[in-house]
Nucleic acid binder design. Structure first.
Lengths: 120, 120
DNA sequence: TTCAAATATTCTAAAAATCGAATATACTTA
DNA sequence: TAAGTATATTCGATTTTTAGAATATTTGAA
């Protein structure tokens, strides 16, 4: 059972391990959105968007509903948006660490200027 | 910037997208642990464990400290353990949905048996 | 019907991830 | 210094992921 949980987590993370799929989940954060509208916002090839949606569907991260001509997607659970929110915090913390580090480097190197390649 | 954040998230998820690496992060949840001890608990090849640790290091998910002969690993931030906790909830919710679904199927099909292909 | 729109699937080539085997590096101790 | 222990890296083969092109499927409308 222990392993099953780890495999499950790894599978979900794998499904989220692509910027386009992150973008899709974020598009679906609030409402249900049609495949066409998702495609439009992503700005990628239709087939490609559809493949990424298929990955998310396979892992049951998204759910879809057919209405006439269109297919509307939505998140199956909002747990994953919690996860994305934490990731944003993590990113921001990470960022501030990096900038703190750079500030320290600059202070050590003062008073003369920091060369361009040390910025980031 | 929007895209940078999405790429960042995807990168972190990619780093976590393997059961062995999930296991490593969970081993490090509480304390700092030596590479050898991690290896022992994982039960994989030494080289393989080291490769997975390298992936986690590259993404700065873990941090290491050298002490004599050994290398001690720890989590750089505890945000990711929050993420793993949410994933456990998500898994449990997922599980109960599946079992509820199976129960419904059984109730609908009662009293006679369900034929194999009618199961999800 | 026939056509067009929305979406999904299949195919193929290229890139990336994974594993174990072999090897390298860095310490420690004899 | 030489040998041993702990850990990391490189290499080669295999598998998986990815993107775009082409094609298929489903549905609504003429």
């Amino acid at each position: 059972m222990q392993n099953a949980l780890q495999r499950f987590k790894a599978d979900i993370f794998q499904a989220l391990a692509h910027p386009t799929r992150i973008a899709i989940v974020e598009i679906l954060r609030e409402d249900e959105v049609s495949a066409g509208a998702i495609l439009e916002r992503l700005g990628v090839e239709q087939a490609n968007a559809s493949q990424h949606l298929a990955v998310l569907r396979a892992r049951q991260i998204v759910v879809n509903r057919k209405e006439g001509n269109q297919v509307f997607y939505s998140l199956r659970s909002h747990r994953l948006t919690e996860v994305l929110d934490i990731m944003r915090l993590y990113f921001e913390e990470h960022l501030s660490e990096v900038t703190e580090m750079l500030t320290e480097i600059r202070l050590q190197a003062s008073p003369s200027d920091v060369s361009p390649e040390e910025e980031q």
